[in-house]
Design a protein around this nucleic acid. Structure first.
Lengths: 214, 214
DNA sequence: CATTGTGAAGCCCTTCACAGCT
DNA sequence: AGCTGTGAAGGGCTTCACAATG
């Protein structure tokens, strides 16, 4: 088993967050880190960190830990496509605007190339630096931008229709903020972010809090 | 093993979403559902649904499935505190505003009782029906509203300070939108929603898409 | 005879524990 | 002495498969 061409979801997730910590290390001039330091910055154990790095095939040295710059580049090679990834957003409501603002502030290799909304008043202007197109232009603009990721920030009752249009237009992965499960072809990745559910879960666990080990 | 006083995280999560589906059923006048129908509306198998309902101790009938109204009430008794839950939000930026808009539109038993921001220009007005207070008032307002859940929508570099203040003021659960891991007492629940990480994950999986069974 | 309820099996991820290295 | 690399064990969640039920 050499480098597999895909890693477990949880590992990918942690790689994304390790990367942020590593960038901070570089900013602070730290050239090397130990697994227990990376672990402390996350909610993880040193063993977990070592296992993740083993999984992706990155080695450190017992005496000096892991090379920050080297690891950062190594993770980048796994996570980032050579040519950068373009995303599109559908639904320029309150949440959509906030997301656009969010992504312009970010130093991720991802960028939101275009947004769509069906309200004529929202179309034609740039929102936080992102052009807003009418929904009709969805297929055309996705083709032009070669976007592969879509962000669904529309009401639940139209989310699935929009998602299917995105997929038909060439989108391969979705982040869905609508409070519904999308029924999609099985080769399309979908990550649901359901804010209400998250709040309800936290409220539940807060009421039933059980102290763990410190 | 009678009713334990807390259920696994994944089960709680699904209960939240089942509830939404059940409400839709009631709206449509459907009085009974089968496990496979609930499963189809989620990304779940019928066995998973039956297991969840078994876990919480709710029974159906082989001939007629599960009673929608009864199950809805049963789940409500588990998820909702008798007196409702108040939440507070810190950080009335783009995302904070979007979240306030989101929660006013929701028929969840949770409500956001107050928001906080340190920018004087934002303080004193209502945003989507929610009063915005200065940060100084955090402890006082949490005491008055008896809020138990906090939403962190501030920049990463101040998120942990804010979170610790919330906890000290009596908050028992957090939803964290800042792109950092919060180090909190172990009896405080925290759910991280990291939008950038979600996008990066989806972009990764979209590139490495492997077709599953349809 | 389609559906529920459920012990048992399976799977995946995390953690342990220790050998090997510097 | 302290850290990495890793086989093996552990734990929790999901799925299977089938007896029980109306």
């Amino acid at each position: 088993m050499n480098t597999p061409n895909h890693y477990p979801d949880r590992t990918v997730e942690r790689l994304c967050t390790y990367r942020r910590t590593l960038r901070r290390c570089l900013d602070e001039g730290k050239a090397r880190v130990f697994s227990h330091q990376l672990a402390a910055a996350h909610q993880a154990t040193p063993a977990q960190v070592r296992r993740d790095l083993m999984t992706i095939g990155f080695s450190g040295s017992p005496a000096r830990g892991y090379d920050v710059a080297g690891l950062l580049e190594f993770i980048g090679d796994i996570l980032d496509p050579p040519s950068g990834t373009a995303a599109v957003l559908v639904g320029v409501g309150h949440l959509g605007r906030a997301l656009l603002a969010h992504f312009t502030r970010d130093r991720s290799p991802l960028h939101v190339a275009a947004a769509f909304d069906n309200a004529p008043a929202k179309v034609g202007v740039d929102v936080h630096g992102c052009p807003v197109h009418p929904l009709d232009a969805l297929e055309r603009v996705i083709g032009e931008t070669r976007a592969t990721v879509g962000i669904v920030a529309v009401p639940g009752d139209v989310a699935e229709d929009i998602a299917l249009r995105l997929v038909t237009a060439g989108i391969r992965g979705l982040v869905n903020f609508a409070p519904v499960i999308l029924h999609l072809p099985s080769d399309v990745t979908c990550e649901d972010i359901d804010i209400t559910v998250s709040l309800e879960k936290v409220a539940y666990h807060a009421r039933h809090a059980r102290a763990h080990v410190a």
